[in-house]
């Protein structure tokens, strides 16, 4: 990714030989700089190697260089279940589906921060926020932290009680809803039926295992919509910048919490920060491709399931 940026930037010299030299030189520098940044990043964020983290949960990590499939990860997490209580960490479910027979827990840092959400709330100038998500996703606390940091009111709505959620949009002047496409549809229908306006901004949490999401029809054009892709609830991998939000784009930027490997037929992520149980070359349930440069300076990414 960094090579791509810099190649475009420097390819303006009139001397091809200089260009070639410059390209090689810059590439070399970038190689070094990239790995230095990784090392620095790790030293700032990771004080132990992944093996120690896994052994803290009573499990052995996969062999170095090997890829982790979802099946392998779930198997490891199930083996680790009885050790969660011995590790100072939070936990989130490994599925958005409460009826998933393989549902287990994925460890998260204590009081995990969601910096992208804070950025969205600032960009959207949110003052009054409603969370409309299943409570077993365990997102309440982190959403509260981010709302508190931007001094926004937060109302936790019940997904099973649409009339109350609708009343809240009016009584509390809700301007931002954090939800999923599944949980918001009933609210949107109810608001439409009662001729009540829908809040102006929507932050959608999408399941990475599901097909590429779409913005609800009645929110396009007229509302601000942010989309994030999570592999598990509270584990975001794709986020959006102001430009993508403005364009109602179905493209994303990669989360800086992971090191990304874009292969032809698969996409892998490795935790770049100190996660209680770091993901190691975890194979995502889709293939992602890097596309254009976004005005924000990051590369836009699309993904598709096989």
């Amino acid at each position: 990714m960094q090579f791509f940026h810099t190649f475009q930037y420097i390819n303006c010299s009139n001397n091809p030989r200089n260009n070639q030299f410059a390209l090689v030189y810059i590439s070399y520098i970038l190689d070094i700089r990239f790995f230095i940044s990784m090392a620095v990043h790790r030293s700032h964020t990771s004080t132990r190697n992944p093996e120690d983290a896994y052994r803290g949960f009573g499990i052995e990590p996969i062999a170095e260089g090997e890829e982790t499939s979802r099946e392998i990860l779930l198997h490891l997490l199930q083996k680790a279940e009885h050790n969660f209580k011995n590790v100072a960490c939070g936990l989130v479910p490994t599925s958005f589906d409460p009826h998933d027979p393989l549902l287990t827990a994925f460890p998260r840092p204590l009081q995990w921060k969601w910096p992208a959400l804070q950025r969205y709330l600032q960009t959207l100038q949110s003052a009054s926020v409603m969370m409309l998500l299943p409570q077993f996703w365990q997102m309440q606390s982190c959403i509260h932290r981010e709302c508190h940091d931007v001094a926004a009111l937060l109302f936790i709505a019940d997904i099973a009680n649409t009339p109350i959620a609708a009343a809240a949009t009016e009584s509390l002047s809700i301007d931002t809803v954090i939800t999923s496409t599944q949980d918001c549809s009933e609210l949107l229908d109810y608001l439409s039926e009662k001729e009540m306006p829908a809040p102006r901004s929507w932050v959608f949490v999408h399941d990475a295992n599901k097909p590429t999401p779409h913005i609800p029809e009645n929110l396009r054009e007229t509302h601000s919509v942010v989309q994030e892709i999570h592999i598990f609830p509270c584990v975001p991998i794709f986020e959006q910048c102001g430009s993508l939000i403005q364009r109602h784009s179905n493209r994303f930027h990669t989360s800086e919490a992971y090191v990304w490997e874009f292969k032809d037929d698969r996409t892998l992520i490795t935790s770049a920060r100190e996660d209680p149980l770091p993901l190691l070359k975890y194979r995502l349930p889709f293939t992602a491709i890097q596309t254009d440069m976004c005005p924000c300076g990051k590369v836009e990414v699309e993904y598709h399931h096989e």
């Binding site: 409460p98 299943p134 409570q135 365990q138 309440q140 606390s141 019940d158 997904i159 099973a160």
Partner: peptide, 8 residues
């Protein structure tokens, strides 16, 4: 460490 109870 708190686990949210979801009655639904």
């Amino acid at each position: 460490r708190v686990v949210a109870f979801d009655p639904v």
